[in-house]
């Protein structure tokens, strides 16, 4: 398992948020947040590609 270092204040906030949101552990919360962020970034990249395809098809970009 990989380990990362984060600011202690951020850690405290994240731990409280994880408990309030009902996560069974802090690790589960962090994993979920990272997965969501990755999915969003991937979706955003796919979105950029789709828009570029549309603009290219219409002849506005190369």
């Amino acid at each position: 398992m990989a380990k990362i270092k984060i600011d202690s204040k951020l850690y405290d906030r994240a731990k409280k948020a994880a408990q309030a949101a009902g996560y069974s552990s802090f690790e589960e919360f962090v994993t979920s947040v990272i997965e969501k962020e990755i999915a969003q970034l991937e979706a955003s990249s796919e979105g950029e590609d789709a828009v570029a395809d549309q603009l290219r098809g219409l002849g506005y970009i190369e």
Binding site: G47, A50, D53, Q54, G57, G59
Partner: peptide, 18 residues
């Protein structure tokens, strides 16, 4: 010509975001 391979609703969302 071929454009984006997504539905109109998705394309609307994407343009809005852009």
């Amino acid at each position: 010509k071929q454009g984006a391979q997504v539905g109109d609703e998705k394309l609307t969302e994407l343009f809005k975001a852009q």
